[in-house]
Amino acid sequence: MSTATRPCPGAPTLYPDGLPRPGRALVMGIVNVTPDSFSDGGRWYAPERAVAHGLALLAEGADILDVGGESTRPGAARVPVEEELRRVLPVVRELAAAGATVSVDTMRAEVAARAVEAGARLVNDVSGGLADPAMLPLVARAGVPYVAMHWRGHSDGMQANAGYDDAAADVADELRLRVEAALHAGIAPDRLVLDPGLGFAKTPEHNWQLLGRLREVVALGYPVLVGAARKSFLGELLADPATGLPRPPHRRDAATSAVTVLAATQGAWCVRVHDVASTADAVRVTARWGREA
């Protein structure tokens, strides 16, 4: 893949493998084109609002925009492929035309293929190729970078699969299997990214174990994406001491920034967030500190 013909101001260089590498952790801004996101509750559901939101995230410092049309919050039901396409394609097309590096967040090969045709440069698959057997061959043919997340089932039943002997070791082992499957399908090793899947078939304790031992995932030898933004394990940690109620999602951004800094120090390639502005500051401070250390 080549550099965008109309790059946004300050956009990171795209290397021959198609992955931005600006010398710090990247910031992936979330553009949910769904009516039922746990975090923004459908605030950007209309295509024109989603596009405007994506452009605002770019202005705040996002390196990548991750556009998704299917909620993966715990308990969410799947949407028909036609509806996912209707939600995603106009937004991908407009943001790509504006020069953004766009990722499509989908588990379906058909959606990934159509989004790449519309200008998406990465495919972010929370199922790691398990939800749709056509996904890995499709990505191999398309030649785009691919994010394979650790996954143990769809949102409506995934928490029943949250059993681990050792969460960090088990996730690393299962991601290794996804790497083997991706390589076997023909995906180039320099276009593969891994995601430990925080919150997906994991308890809060599992999430903290994974973050504390993130280097074990980094040690697999591939760029690592961390998606902790506003997730419930942060809300539980920050619960109101008087009522015991979890802190609501829109008040978890400072905690997300703290996770960003710690993930970056452990070698994360990218963090996926809602609050781009503070995250962009956090990764730059972390990178500068790291150069001195």
Rank of each mutant, 00 (worst) to 15 (best):
R247W: 01
G42S: 11
E236L: 14
F233R: 03
G61T: 12
G119L: 05
L262A: 15
G69V: 06
A77Y: 02
P7C: 10
V193H: 04
P145K: 02
V218W: 05
P133A: 14
R21I: 03
A46L: 14
K202Y: 09
M135E: 02
L192H: 03
D253N: 14
P47Q: 08
T243S: 15
A148S: 13
A113F: 09
P204M: 05
G41I: 00
A97C: 08
P249K: 13
L192T: 02
P189A: 14
G54V: 07
L214H: 03
P189Q: 09
W151S: 10
A181W: 01
H274T: 07
R176G: 15
V147G: 00
P241M: 05
A140D: 07
V271F: 02
D170Y: 10
P133V: 12
A160T: 12
R108T: 03
H206R: 10
G10R: 06
A162I: 10
W289H: 08
R87T: 06
I64T: 04
G69K: 02
V123H: 07
A185Q: 03
S39T: 12
D173L: 04
A185N: 04
G128S: 13
A167M: 03
A168C: 14
P35Q: 13
T260G: 11
V276T: 10
R86V: 00
L89D: 02
V79C: 11
D170F: 09
V139I: 14
L245V: 14
E205K: 12
S39I: 05
G197C: 01
A50E: 08
V51M: 07
L220H: 10
G75C: 11
E82G: 01
T72E: 11
R152T: 10
D275E: 14
E82D: 13
E94W: 00
M107S: 15
G186P: 10
G18S: 11
V81K: 04
T106I: 04
A242P: 02
T106C: 03
V67P: 01
E117R: 11
A282W: 06
R252D: 08
M158G: 02
V271E: 01
D166G: 07
T34D: 05
Q209V: 15
L220W: 10
R215T: 12
D281P: 00
R251G: 00
D166T: 06
R230A: 06
A277V: 11
G199F: 04
D165K: 09
V31G: 04
P196V: 14
A293Y: 05
V217D: 09
H150E: 02
T279C: 12
A118D: 06
M28Q: 07
G157Y: 11
M28V: 15
L210F: 12
A201S: 09
S232K: 04
W151R: 07
R215M: 00
T5L: 14
P248N: 08
A50V: 09
L122C: 11
E94M: 00
A134E: 15
G143P: 10
L57T: 04
N207S: 15
A118V: 08
D275A: 14
R213K: 12
